[in-house]
Design a protein around this nucleic acid. Structure first.
Lengths: 206, 206
DNA sequence: TTTTTAAGCGTGTGTCGTACGCTTACGAAG
DNA sequence: CTTCGTAAGCGTACGACACACGCTTAAAAA
């Protein structure tokens, strides 16, 4: 009977993501999101309780369109797919990286991804506490790698600085940084993941 | 000839860390650090250029007292030691966890730790781009695991929420969360790391 | 047409980082 | 012992921020 709502949570999340993509995390403010929607700042609070929830909506919007359908390939390959799909989705919205860790737990999309990963682990014979540890290690690697390559990419100025470091105090850091120039973010993520999966006892075969 | 300085960067970093330990990241402000030192807020700017640098000093103060002396044990065991020592140092100051990723690159202590880790990889036969990838994977796991267990510890309310999730939509998440209660943070970190190190081809032997 | 409900938002509060420029402590020079 | 130059310490102010509060008004129900 009262005036109908003019916004949905999805529209708000989409507007916030647009701001985030355009102006980065520093540019993300309630004011900016309101303006992006053509509304006043405080109108948002009719829909969400606080900024925290807004960040959760953003993360969910991004994670939600990770495809969870997996082809009938080996467990190894399915985990690679799940990890890479997250990476690809996040790469379209680099500024969400810092939000992933803090908002992961209040995103249904994140939970669905977790369930999908766990089903691969389960099918590969991981049970009980061993499954807990393996899943969390997988999660830690994926999130850690995204953060690491976001905050200090191999192809960034940081690498140049390291490459020029004092040969005496940091010989290996310098040498390794010079080798780093030949490694793409894609290869770094993929081959690092490969190390972990091999540790799980999963090779290219099932 | 002019008035002598009354503070050192170390004192400022120590004060900031004290504030961080006491009041958390939300409580860390230039005003609070000034007060902690018995100085006005703006006095800090005679010593540091901005808050960013202050955060770097905190991270360095914490990372600086990671012991880098390694006993003559296997490469596997030395990497475990390096990872665990970071974990132990950070556990004394949990609120620095979010700063580790952003400030890692402007901390000499972090670089020294990196050099130490690289020397283990080098000695274990990792060369060129393979060393780059292995080191970055190690780094990603360590940082990712610290962040993960800080923002959603296995023994936290998040786990309880997951354990109670709908049996239909998230059966594995629920079951796994229930198993998670038996796993300490220490075991999670250690055994997750073990998976990665096994992937490197490093077992308990050299 | 009137009533009722809540949508939208203007204003204000207390926080933040930090720019600016004043006051003052203090070592050196006369 | 006085004076002076320099920079330390800091008071104030500015423009952001998230958000509390309560007014105005759109629009569905009667």
């Amino acid at each position: 009977m009262p005036r109908p709502r003019s916004l949905t949570l999805d529209q708000i999340a989409a507007a916030a993501l647009a701001v985030l993509d355009r102006d980065g995390l520093d540019g993300l403010s309630m004011r900016a999101v309101g303006k992006q929607l053509g509304f006043g700042t405080m109108s948002l609070y009719r829909y969400i309780t606080d900024r925290e929830q807004l960040e959760g909506l953003i993360v969910d919007l991004v994670l939600r369109d990770v495809d969870l359908d997996l082809p009938p390939v080996s467990a190894h390959d399915r985990l690679v797919l799940l990890a890479q799909r997250v990476r690809h989705v996040v790469r379209e919205h680099p500024a969400v990286v810092p939000l992933l860790l803090t908002q992961r737990h209040n995103s249904p999309g994140s939970r669905r991804w977790g369930e999908a990963a766990l089903s691969v682990f389960a099918e590969a014979g991981f049970r009980g506490e061993r499954r807990v540890v393996a899943f969390r290690a997988f999660l830690s690697y994926v999130l850690g790698a995204l953060q690491t390559s976001h905050f200090s990419p191999l192809a960034g100025t940081g690498t140049d600085v390291l490459a020029a470091l004092s040969e005496e105090e940091f010989p290996l850091l310098g040498e390794t940084a010079r080798h780093a120039r030949g490694v793409t973010a894609e290869r770094e993520f993929r081959e690092g993941l490969e190390f972990l999966l091999r540790g799980f006892g999963l090779r290219d075969a099932d």
